[in-house]
Design a protein around this nucleic acid. Sequence first.
DNA 1: ACCATTAGTGAACGCAACGTTCACTATCTA
DNA 2: TAGATAGTGAACGTTGCGTTCACTAATGGT
Lengths: 196, 196
Amino acid sequence: MTESTPSRRRGDDLEHAIFEATLEELAEVGYANLRMESIAARARAGKASLYKRWPSRAHLVRAAVRHRGATSEMLFEPTGAVRADLERVMHRIAEVQAGPDGEAVRGYVGELTASSDGEELRDDIERPRVRIVTAIFEAGIKAGAVRPEALTPRIANLAPSLMTHYFLTRGEPAPPEVIDEILDLVVMPLITETGR
Amino acid sequence: MTESTPSRRRGDDLEHAIFEATLEELAEVGYANLRMESIAARARAGKASLYKRWPSRAHLVRAAVRHRGATSEMLFEPTGAVRADLERVMHRIAEVQAGPDGEAVRGYVGELTASSDGEELRDDIERPRVRIVTAIFEAGIKAGAVRPEALTPRIANLAPSLMTHYFLTRGEPAPPEVIDEILDLVVMPLITETGR
DNA sequence: ACCATTAGTGAACGCAACGTTCACTATCTA
DNA sequence: TAGATAGTGAACGTTGCGTTCACTAATGGT
């Protein structure tokens, strides 16, 4: 062993352990029941170490989610089959929502105010989704299956927005039938050239 | 005076005062900072009177919102000008979101779980909106401006859903430009017969 | 190889709000 | 007019907050 398991961690090492603990707690008890004391206990850290780094639960959660986001970037290669690609992305969103990220978003929304700066986390979550959907649209346009005017952020964000809306207002991710309905009644008719 | 302003209210009288106080507090401090003690104080009631009626803050808020909802039903008579009608309804939704109802929804979402029964409040809010949009669509169909297949709950709920999504994720109601964009890029293209 | 510095621990603290209880009192009803 | 019913307000124990402090483990410069 090169690092001889030191009994007291510091710096990034400790920070990482706290993030892990936060995400686990989040997944287990949900944002509303998240306790700083539980996180500290699970990470085998002092509460003071948490408050030294982040001023509030909200900040800690945001940092933990961003950390995780930086680690596992959402990758997606469009196949050209627009509907199938969108469906896959939406299912992937549903999976993420079922985990700690979903809980984080819910809690975040609960504490949000017009003044409080929610842009950071929102952009972290929205941007990659818009990017992927845009890529899918572009592939579809190239194949002549998608009309070029559909290539706007608002429309690219439509499917993800409806996923988020469902999740927030129902408490659980949209099931497959709902995803199908969103695609067949809303998204596909809107972006396809013919096909009504 | 027939009722001689009794110094101690009971029954519906008291209940009504508590609802008033709840909605006022909600509008002033927001759901996250809502305190049972403040509500009781504002209503000049004992905390015990609150807990005798509702088991939790969430229940009280829900009841208060339903009470208000029952009082001021959202009325709307379609003029036949589909886009203008939708725009008016969306502006009306934005106004409501800026008040206590918006705060209630935000708080509600924050505490929601897959298990917890959110149907009640959600339906109270969703149903009247779908009803109104449906009426607008029907008028549009009659005028030949809207294609009949657009008449489904999912599509009727689209504009309201996007309003709610914006409100929840940004912390404030959608501004007029966003409403315009939603209408011009998403809703109108989807429901109109021609118009691409 | 040592020791000053830095960083983390864990217990304790005061505080605020929770949700409950209880003795008291105002209002209603028979 | 005498119960019975319903509300008040203060007090209570509890929980989690965010902070502080004496102590201790790791680190890095010389």
